[in-house]
Amino acid sequence: MKVHVDQELCQGHGRCYALAPELFEPDDLGNGFAIDEGDVPAELVAKARLAAANCPESAVIIIEDTDLATEAAEPT
């Protein structure tokens, strides 16, 4: 999983870095940014989803693991 903050939508409410400081950080204006490449280790998946669910602007984007997504989409 990866996380990403859509800078067109972000208004600096700060919910993402308050709820998941391991994954997000503010810039000098208070806008949220994913740390490093936005990679989400397994133990932080729940926090990533919580951050996304609490963003008033729906600016936190979750990118599910592509391999898993593809597997899930394919009939077994």
């Binding site: 208004q11 409410h13 919580l50 669910a53 609490n54 963003c55 008033p56 602007e57 729906s58």
Partner: peptide, 15 residues
Amino acid sequence: REVNRHAAFGLGIHR
């Protein structure tokens, strides 16, 4: 309440 996408501080560019 864990999921709380409230608008107490407004929405959009005037947050």
